[in-house]
Amino acid sequence: MTSHAERVELDPECPARGVREAAEKVKGGGEVVLEFGGVLRMDAAAAKALEELAGVAEGCEGRIVLRGVKIGIYRVLKQLRLERRVTIVCE
């Protein structure tokens, strides 16, 4: 992880909002760290937003890093094949 990474703390009640915000930050090709620590469950909106964010990052050689991903959420990412499009950091 580089020191220039932008960090986004996700709101456990509405993780999709933070994920959408991250799309703006990654557009320049940088790195965005999404803090999932407080998120207990990923809803469909957040999953969709993360799919889109991954697409944006791939388009501008940006990097999405997910931290604090709980195992249930990791299963969701895996099922959507999203885990290969982002970097998941274990604590």
Partner: peptide
């Protein structure tokens, strides 16, 4: 696609 996301999310 929508159903796929729903199915994944539903596992939780």
């Amino acid at each position: 696609g929508q159903a796929g996301i729903a199915a994944a999310v539903f596992t939780q």
